[in-house]
Design a binder for these strands. Structure first.
Lengths: 189, 189
DNA sequence: GCACATTATGCAACAAGTTGCATAATAGTG
DNA sequence: CACTATTATGCAACTTGTTGCATAATGTGC
């Protein structure tokens, strides 16, 4: 149930609506935990029944009314307790690796192209992170916990993307060196 | 539904029972796709209704009977078709990163300890991969698709673990440099 | 004026993953 | 002889995540 905690983390900074949260989960905290709006609205209700968030209706005339959620003292206490629990990293699940695992039974050329696409995605990601670093974390004070934490998150992103970029480059080369697969030549348009 | 394909990939090599598959998903292919036995038995039934696997009952006297599954021609065709589809990498979900994201509202010392634990895990993983490389992939021929694919999978593991190890080391240092959090000193036993 | 994007919330159905339990035989350990 | 591990399969209940749809008002571009 870490979606709940990811939401609490956002609300610990400032009260937000489900809509606002959905946008956050598309960018900032979304780099570490993805969720769409249905999940978020559903989870907010759970958090409310647990007493970890409170909500207030904000009446609007020109727009649909909103429901703004804020974290409660119980919510903050829960967040701290949760931060003390150890959570093993989520098990890896990667289609592309499964395809590589059975490269002998599969369309190699297509897999190679997919790696090229992935390389592109990783490069874009890295680029984005670099832009964020320049604009937001230029001079992070070394004793501000909040800032250090976010900088470390960003650096994890760097490390992750760079590792994948290097791997993709190597993989593309090695797959290109492979003899034409009969599979590919007979079935591809 | 990539669990199905991961199963087919295993069956493409040799017929296996659900029990055998569960063991594979704990080691070899489990490095890229995790699943427990309940998921596997459930999925095997789906694969059968799709006509992608066939099963036969193996009667045993000293042990419970087993049901051995093998891939059908339709199954192989499906596997190839699936390998041509592009599958975006699964979105990242990492509790630890969420904790870092809100380091100001959380037990810093405990998070630091969790990173130490994670570092340990990554080192063990790397170690395991290195042993596998030495024992299995000493002289991988460059033109054997199956072998190259698996070697690339292993190298992805290397890249991934090494990147995390470096990151953990840096993170531990930076968190240690942070001033003692009041939170930690007042709540930790 | 019409199509489309934005703001804002939500239901319903389904697919996938998790947890706990049940069964049943044998082999090995103390 | 009791306890535990291994082989082998499975149900049921639950939580999470995904997909498609619905509503409803306003602002923007052509």
């Amino acid at each position: 149930m870490a979606l709940g905690e990811a939401i609490l983390v956002c609300l610990a900074e400032e009260p937000l609506t489900g809509y606002d949260l959905a946008k956050s989960f598309d960018t900032s905290i979304g780099f570490f935990w993805r969720a769409d709006h249905q999940q978020i609205y559903r989870e907010l209700k759970r958090l409310k029944t647990n007493g970890w968030v409170a909500d207030e209706l904000v009446v609007q005339t020109s727009r649909p009314n909103k429901r703004r959620y804020s974290i409660t003292p119980d919510g903050r206490a829960h967040l701290i307790a949760w931060s003390r629990e150890s959570h093993p990293p989520a098990p890896v699940k990667d289609d592309l690796m499964v395809k590589l695992y059975s490269l002998a039974d599969v369309d190699i050329d297509s897999v190679r192209r997919q790696i090229v696409d992935r390389l592109d995605g990783h490069r874009n990601r890295l680029n984005l992170y670099e832009r964020i670093e320049r604009s937001v974390y230029r001079d992070t004070p070394e004793d501000d916990a909040g800032a250090v934490g976010r900088l470390l998150g960003l650096r994890a992103g760097f490390a992750y993307e760079r590792a994948w970029i290097r791997w993709c480059e190597d993989a593309i080369e090695r797959l290109s060196a492979l003899p034409e697969s009969t599979l590919t030549s007979s079935h591809t348009p």
